[in-house]
Structures are given as structure tokens and as C-alpha cells.
Design a protein around this nucleic acid. Structure first.
Lengths: 404, 404
DNA sequence: CTGAAAGCGCTTACAG
DNA sequence: CTGAAAGCGCTTACAG
């Protein structure tokens, strides 16, 4: 069977009795600019329909420069084996926005090395340039590759706060600083007076910003300003393995009536710990998570990290970067939905096992006592030494996120 | 900041002191054919590395070369909103094999129309031609687009049995015909004598093949041949909404001690029906599903549709189609893992609500009584009229799947 | 108002 | 052993 040749512009031109260039003009609606008569245009369109013409994308993008392709690169596998993978919602958002922008997505799979990690330049060449730009995700540190990408002038945007020395890394992030106010308000409104802030040892940017936001939100209330009643909190840095039934009992015995959980792995550990202590939220203790993953989502009320919206905004930001219309510093915080009330109750409502310390105990709160206006620096909090900010944050101060 | 120009072959050529054509030869490993000396090749490769050369995919594919891109097209959205989407595992497999083959994946999102469906030619141009070939998924019927794709000679492979008149559609499918034998054996071994085969009204290829496979496996046993004891079954075609507690009671009252569920939506309906009837599997009735989706997976023992493996094999088959090394008829059945035993028990073990009809009732079984060797045609089964094969299967007989 | 021509970055015969 | 040249199918100045 002889494969029928795919029609091209010159075939239409011949059929319509015009030049190939004229066909191109009509196709691209630049016909008006050149005032090609309606009759000619009609003839051309009829010829197109008759031959079933379809433009050759490769030729178009070779000529025009843009491929209409947005890359997606992760430093780990894109479709992890686990059914509850973290990337999923980001991809949903990226895809949504690609649809809206009429772009296609390239998932770079060819860059995977035998150990399962993915490298941009590992193969010796940057396949990524096949796309007009790329959204990059992943926890792995690959500062050298990022720097090289920036040096080449390749447009990219990170999902998640990323800093690489010498490079203005564009990124979208959850707006944790503003997301903490509703959390504090909800706890204060439920008349909690003392809260345990269960923090992760690894102090990434997200952890840092959550704690700063929480502190800033709690401080004015603490000072007795308008609105909610005072809320004291104590930062407790723990590995997930340390979050046991005993830890829960000790925490409640210390007078806390609510627990704020910084990360999703701690949230999972806490859910297990509560279960094995025979306690439940909000009956025995109120709990709010500041992050979540699919596995921890059902356990507690939590700040909803807007992963899908972040994916969408990342593509928007990328498109702005690609055509140079994005103003510095190219960081885009995305609003977080406030937590639900499911696992937050009033202390009196609970059948707390804590009888030794009153919920309203006037023990010196661990939080700042300075009546300074928000945002108060987190550094004044009596946190364990392990809660020190990450190296990058101490050497170079974290830049304030600002909208694009 | 002036963006450094992206290097092209002529830049490498200049740096290495050769012609651009020579660079192309070395790049494409056709250097051997032209016996370009190792020293020259080395110089060229070093220049490539130094400049960070990456081929321009558009130019390559315009010229007729390979882009190293495998397209993924779905007639519905790729990343559905529901957390339990059906495509997920297929994509996992596709991606796995892309990694293995060193290829990248293009997810066509630009083709989405306002109603959410996706069309290959809807935008007037076939973006898909950017890729070397494509894996296509989706339930929507778009025979015209498939035919056009085939006419253009574009390589593609379907996931799922697909037939389009006048086109040899390459596809991978679950090997249902062989998957049914373990199901029949498991039921017979557990000493079931009468089984209800709960079938879907929509008789797609998968449904068709399951029923044929089941019939073929049950027939020899029925004839008293070696191995399992006789197994009679009655096909009951139902909409999911019809699968109620009453339906379950009536089915058990009819003497069936086990239910085989053809599709995952019926499986979900049956799970609900059992619950509302206050029954459970395998205590009251044994149940095996012949398909599953993430939402029905936990409910019953089921034949595991090897979605990930199907994704992998689809890419393998596509690569064979692309370089013309795949022999007709290009259909590839993938082995299914046998079901677990979780919801299969012996009838005597159950506290069946059925007291009226003995489990070993000698009522005339609905199955074929012909002692013919397998595979027996499903047509001899006393199925309701609505269980007629689909139009395409009656006009053109279903071709026997055969390995590539 | 329309056409001839250049050129996007490649690959592949074809000459030397 | 290597280079000059054609050409893939387009878009976009530039001439008429």
C-alpha cells in the first residue's frame, strides 16, 4: 500500500492558483495585513479543506523558534511507584495550565540514571532545550545543574522555595506566612491557651516560613491586642520516631491542649501515637497539621498546601519568564486554604487525661513576650538548638517572597 | 542580560575544524559507515561537550529523523481530577519503559477542546507528529481520527482492544482468555457448583473476551474431564443500579454460592449491595472480580489487570511499529496475575441465607452441556438478549489475539 | 495585492 | 576519509 503523501502548503497553493507564501499568510490570519481579497482567501480555504491540510509543527517551530512544549523535570521519578505520591497534584495543576495555554508537556524520562535519580546534563546534553522552558520539581539538591541551566539562559521555574547561590531562581511556593493566621485564630477562638508546636529537625524553607508565620500570628494575640485571646506555644523538635504515645502523654501533662504539626511525616507519626495512646482528636487533644500528603490527609485538620494551584501558577510564571515579561524577583507565593475544624475543639470539651496542669496554666509561655507588631522574628522563640535555621538561611537572609 | 545563543552543529564543526555534515555523522553514529577516524570523532565529541550541544528536535524531525519523543494521547484528560484515576498505572508503565528506552514522553494537552475531550486533529493540525509515535488511551470513540492517523502513516499503539474498520490497529490488551482458567479452577476447587456471572450490559471487547474465556475454562470441567469438578454458571446482565440487596438475595436463593463480577463498576455496586444486605464475602458468598479499578480494588479478590505491564508493552510494541520490525497483526495480550483467595471460600463454610435451594442443586445449568474441547463459543450460553456481542463483533468476527 | 527568496537546523545522498 | 549541496515545510521580510 502506497502511503498517500501528506499535503503541504505548496499543494494547496497549486490547487488554489496562488503562491505558497500566500497560503501561509491566509493560514496565519495575516491575510488582513496584506489585504488579500476575500475571494482568494475563500479559494485557499476550500483547497485546504479538500486536501485535509495540517501544518507541519516541526517546520513551524523550526522557523518560529517556539516548540509549544513545556518541559517537566523532576530530580526523582515522575510517576513514583507509591500510589500516594506527592507530585501528583502538582502535575495536575501543570497540566491544567498547559491545557489553558494550548501547550504540550514533555516529561523527561530519558534523563534517568541507573540509581533512579535524574540529571539534566547527565547524558552529556541537555534534552530539556527541546522545550520552550521547564517546570522543575524535586527535593534533590542539584545546584550545579541549576546554575548551568541559568547560564545557558534556559527558562525554568521551580515548584517549592529554592535558592542557588549566584542564580535568581524563579519559584512558586505556598504562602505559609499568611496561612498561619487562621490557624492561630482557630486555636485561640477554641480557647486554647497553650499549644505544642511539633517541629521537624530538618529546617527547610517551608518549615522555616511556617514557624515564622505562626510566631508572627501568635505574637499580637499574646500581647493582648484586639482579636483572639493569648496563645502560648512551645516548639518541640522531634524525629517522627520520637513521636510516641509517651511523647503525647508528656506533652499533654505539660499543659498543652493542642498540637500543631509542622510536617506530614510528623502528622503520620502523631496519628499513630494518638491511636496507640488510646486518644483521639479533638476529644482528647486538638490537632492541626501545617502540611499534608495524601497519606496523612485524612488524619487531622490541616493547612491545605495548594499543590494544584502551585502547579498552575508555575506554568504561568514560566510563560512570563519565557517571554521576558516577568519582573524580578520572580517568586510567587500561592494562597493556602485555611484548615477545616474537624480535629479542633475546645479544651473543656475534651476528656483530657491531663489533670495535673490546668489548661489555663500561667506557666511562663515559651513564646515571645515582646508586644512587638507582627511579624516577630522566630529567633526569639525558645526552641531547642536543633531547630536552628538551615545554613543557606543563616549565610544569606531569606528574601521576602513577593508577588510577580 | 544577553542570552547566549544555543549552539548548533555548525558551531561544533567550526570548533572541531570539520564540516557540519561530519558532525551530524558522528552524532548519529553513522561515523563508522564513513570511517571517520577516532581522533576526529573525539575532537567533535569534546567540542559538543564544551558547547553543551543539544540537537534541535524540530529540525531533526522536519528532516525525517527521530525526535526521541514518544507521544501519549488520551481522548480524555491525562491527569483526571479524581484521585483514583484509571490511567495512572498505564502511565507508570509507559514511563518505566520510556526510561528503559531512553526516550522522553510528550503528553498532549494542547489538543483539549472546551468540553474536556481531546482531539488529534481538532485544532486543525496534528501536533502529534512532533513525536516518533504515540501510545493512545481512552474510551472515547474516534474512529475517524484513528483512520486518518493510519492514513498518514503515523505510528501508534492503543492500550486496550481497539478495532477500526479498514485499519490494522496495533494494541496491547490483557490476556483475558487465559486469565479465566485460574478463576474457574479456584471456584471449582472450593467446591462451588453453581456460580452467578454478573455481566455488564455494555459488551466491549474486554467483556466479550472474559466471558468467552470463562466459558472455555468452565466447559471441560462441566464435561467431567480431568481436574476440577463441574461448574455451572448463569450469566446475568445487569446495570450497576440493578445490583441491590434484593438482587443478591434472589441470586443466592437461586442456588448460586459464588458471584463472578465482570466489571469494576459492577464490583463497586455489588460491594454496596452486600453491605446493605448485611452479607459479607467469603462468609456468605464467594466473589471474584474480573476487572478492577483503584476504587474497587480492596473489595474482592479479582483478576489483576496488568495495567503497568500493559503500559510497558505498549511502548515496546510502538518502538517495533516505528522501525517496522513488528509482524502483523500487532496485537499483544499481556498475562494477568491470578486473583487472590481473599473473598473465595467453600460454600459449606458460609452462613448462607439460602436455605431453599441446595448449593449442589441439580437444576439444569445455564452453561453449555457440550463436552466440546475448549474454547467453547460463548454463544451457547443462555445469556439474556441484552448480552449480545457488540455491533463490531457481529459484523466482523473478533480476531484471535496473537503475540507479536 | 501577490510572488520569489532566504533561512530555521538538521540528514542524507552524492562528489570528490 | 570529508565537504558541498539539496531539501524537509514552514514564516517573514522584501520586491515588485
Amino acid at each position: 500500500m502506497n502511503r498517500p503523501r501528506i499535503p503541504r502548503q505548496s499543494d494547496i497553493a497549486r490547487l488554489a492558483g496562488v503562491s505558497q507564501a500566500t497560503v501561509s499568510m491566509v493560514l496565519n490570519d495575516r491575510a488582513g495585513a496584506n489585504r488579500i481579497p476575500e475571494a482568494t482567501q475563500k479559494r485557499i480555504r476550500e483547497a485546504m479543506a479538500e486536501l485535509g491540510y495540517v501544518p507541519n509543527i516541526a517546520a513551524q517551530s523550526l522557523r518560529g523558534g517556539r516548540s509549544g512544549l513545556i518541559g517537566v523535570h523532576t530530580f526523582e521519578r515522575v510517576f513514583p511507584t507509591a500510589p500516594d505520591d506527592y507530585y501528583r497534584e502538582f502535575l495536575n495543576g501543570i497540566e491544567e495550565q498547559a491545557v489553558a495555554a494550548g501547550l504540550d508537556l514533555v516529561l523527561f524520562a530519558s534523563t534517568q540514571k541507573p540509581d533512579g535519580t535524574r540529571s539534566i546534563y547527565g547524558s552529556g546534553s541537555n534534552r530539556m532545550r527541546l522545550a520552550d522552558g521547564a517546570v522543575i520539581l524535586g527535593f534533590e539538591k542539584n545546584d550545579d545543574e541549576i546554575r548551568r541551566l541559568a547560564d545557558e539562559g534556559f527558562p525554568f521555574v521551580f515548584i517549592g522555595h529554592r535558592e542557588v547561590e549566584g542564580v535568581d531562581v524563579p519559584f512558586v511556593t505556598a504562602d505559609y506566612s499568611s496561612a498561619m493566621a487562621p490557624v492561630v485564630r482557630m486555636l485561640a477562638d477554641a480557647e486554647h491557651r497553650k499549644v505544642a508546636y511539633l517541629a521537624a529537625p530538618l529546617r527547610g524553607f517551608a518549615q522555616q516560613e511556617r514557624l515564622e508565620g505562626f510566631t508572627a500570628a501568635a505574637a499580637p494575640a499574646q500581647a493582648g491586642s484586639a482579636g483572639a485571646a493569648g496563645l502560648a506555644f512551645e516548639v518541640d523538635v522531634r524525629e517522627p520516631a520520637e513521636v510516641t504515645a509517651a511523647w503525647v502523654r508528656a506533652t499533654l501533662a505539660g499543659g498543652a491542649t493542642a498540637i500543631v504539626v509542622e510536617t506530614y511525616d510528623l502528622a503520620r507519626a502523631l496519628a499513630d501515637a494518638l491511636a496507640s495512646a488510646g486518644l483521639s482528636a479533638p476529644a482528647d487533644v486538638s490537632v492541626i497539621g501545617l502540611d499534608s500528603d495524601p497519606r496523612s490527609e485524612g488524619a487531622f485538620s490541616h493547612v491545605r498546601v495548594p499543590r494544584r494551584a502551585m502547579g498552575r501558577r508555575a506554568v504561568e510564571l514560566l510563560l512570563a519568564v519565557i517571554d521576558g515579561s516577568a519582573p524580578a524577583p520572580l517568586t510567587l507565593p500561592v494562597h493556602c486554604d485555611p484548615p477545616t475544624h474537624d480535629t479542633v475543639g475546645t479544651p473543656s470539651l475534651g476528656t483530657s487525661i491531663v489533670a495535673t496542669a490546668a489548661a489555663t496554666a500561667s506557666a511562663t509561655p515559651a513564646t515571645t513576650t515582646t508586644p512587638a507588631p507582627a511579624p516577630a522574628p522566630a529567633a526569639t522563640i525558645a526552641a531547642p538548638a536543633t531547630a536552628a535555621p538551615p545554613a543557606s538561611a543563616t549565610t544569606a537572609p531569606t528574601p521576602a517572597p513577593s508577588a510577580v
